[in-house]
C-alpha cells in the first residue's frame, strides 16, 4: 500500500460533548422534583426520607435493566407485567400447597425465566414474527394462565420473614434499595464493559451486519429476553412481599411504566442508543414525582396522565437530540 497515512487512534475529549449528555438534563429534572417536593412537605428533603421513599417505587424498577437492553436491541417486550403476575401467582399457590417458602421463591424466579426464555425462543425460531406480536401473545397467555390458576382469588399468608424483602432495612438502608444498587452495577458493567453488551448495541443498529460478522445474534436475543423474564420475577418477589398477597391482576400496566422510564432515560426506541445511567435516573424521577404528587394529595389518575405525557415528551425530546438534521428534512 503506497501512501500509508497514519490514522489517529486518540479519542478527542470534548467538554461540550460531556455536558451535552442527556443524563445531565435528567439530574437537573431530579433536582427540580426534589425542590418541588420539599416545598410541598418540609419533611421530604431529609436524608432518612430520601432513603426510605424508594422502597415505595423500586419494585418495578428491576425490569428497567433488561428492558433497557431489549429497547437498545430495537425491540420491545410488553409481556413483562403479565410475567410478574404469573410468577407471583405460581409462587403464592405453590407456597400454599405446602412448598417451603425459599423453594417457592426459586420457583417464582424459574417461572419468570422460562416465560422470558419462551419469548426469546419464539423470536429466534420464528424470525418472521414481529416482537410486538410475540410479546403481545405471551402477554395475554401468561396473564391468562395466572387467571386459570387462581381465578379472581387472592393468595397470600406468607411467613413473616418474607416481608423483609419489601419492608426490611440493613443499617437503615432499605433492602430493596441495596438489591437495586447491586443489580444496577451488574447490569451497567455487562452492558457497557463486556462483549455481550457490545453485541447488544451492534444488533440494535444492524442485526444483519452482526450476523455476517460472526456474532451469535440468536443467543444474544435469547439471553436478553430471558433476562427480562428473570427480572420480572424478581419484581414479583418484591411486589408480593410489599403487598402481602397476590392476585392475577397485579402489575397490570407495568410494561408501560417501565418503557416510560427507559424512554425518559434517553434510550432511543429505534435501537442502538442509550446508556444504563439514564433509565436509573428516570426510575428515581418518576418515583419521587409520583410520591410527591401523593404528598400533595393529587389523585392517582392524574399521575397516570403525567406519566403518559412524560413518555411522549421524552421520546420527542430524544428525537430532537439524536438527529435534529434528519428531523428537519423529514418535516
Amino acid at each position: 500500500m503506497s501512501d500509508v497515512r497514519k490514522i489517529s487512534i486518540e479519542k478527542e475529549w470534548s467538554w461540550k460533548g460531556f455536558f451535552l449528555q442527556w443524563e445531565w438534563l435528567l439530574v437537573l429534572v431530579l433536582i427540580v422534583v426534589f425542590l418541588v417536593n420539599s416545598l410541598i412537605s418540609p419533611y421530604f428533603l431529609t436524608l432518612s426520607s430520601l432513603i426510605q421513599t424508594p422502597s415505595t417505587f423500586l419494585d418495578k424498577a428491576f425490569i428497567v435493566f433488561p428492558m433497557t437492553m431489549v429497547i437498545i436491541l430495537g425491540r420491545i417486550d410488553i409481556s413483562v407485567g403479565s410475567t410478574v403476575a404469573l410468577s407471583a401467582v405460581v409462587m403464592a399457590v405453590s407456597y400454599n400447597a405446602g412448598v417451603p417458602m425459599p423453594v417457592a421463591m426459586i420457583i417464582c424466579l424459574l417461572v419468570g425465566t422460562i416465560g422470558g426464555g419462551l419469548n426469546g425462543l419464539l423470536l429466534t425460531q420464528f424470525k418472521e414474527l414481529s416482537h410486538v406480536i410475540v410479546t403481545l401473545a405471551s402477554m395475554i397467555i401468561y396473564r391468562g394462565i395466572a387467571y386459570i390458576i387462581l381465578g379472581d382469588q387472592a393468595s397470600g399468608g406468607f411467613p413473616d420473614w418474607y416481608s423483609f424483602l419489601g419492608w426490611g432495612s440493613i443499617a437503615g438502608i432499605p433492602f430493596i434499595l441495596i438489591v437495586f444498587a447491586v443489580a444496577a452495577v451488574i447490569f451497567g458493567l455487562v452492558l457497557h464493559k463486556t462483549r455481550f453488551g457490545r453485541s447488544v448495541y451492534g444488533m440494535g443498529f444492524n442485526s444483519t451486519t452482526c450476523e455476517y460478522s460472526g456474532l451469535r445474534t440468536d443467543r444474544v436475543t435469547l439471553i436478553v429476553f430471558t433476562l427480562a423474564g428473570l427480572m420480572s420475577a424478581v419484581t414479583a418477589l418484591f411486589l408480593t412481599s410489599r403487598m402481602g398477597s397476590t392476585r392475577p391482576n397485579v402489575a397490570t400496566g407495568y410494561e408501560l411504566e417501565v418503557i416510560t422510564m427507559v424512554a425518559l432515560g434517553g434510550v432511543s426506541t429505534s435501537g442502538g442508543i442509550g446508556k444504563i445511567g439514564g433509565p436509573i435516573l428516570a426510575v428515581f424521577i418518576i418515583g419521587y414525582l409520583s410520591y410527591g404528587m401523593g404528598l400533595a394529595n393529587i389523585q392517582a389518575p392524574v399521575v397516570l396522565v403525567v406519566i403518559g405525557l412524560l413518555l411522549i415528551v421524552s421520546v420527542l425530546a430524544m428525537k430532537f437530540r439524536v438527529s435534529p438534521k434528519k428531523r428537519k428534512l423529514a418535516m
Partner: peptide, 27 residues
C-alpha cells in the same frame, strides 16, 4: 450487511473479533 453505519470505524473493525479484545469478561 457489512457495516454498522452509525458506529465509528474502530468499533466496526473489531466487531468480528470481540473475543480477542476481552479478558475473560471485560473489553
Amino acid at each position: 450487511q457489512g457495516l454498522i453505519l452509525e458506529w465509528e470505524i474502530g468499533k466496526n473493525i473489531t466487531l468480528p473479533a470481540l473475543k480477542y479484545f476481552s479478558n475473560l469478561f471485560w473489553m
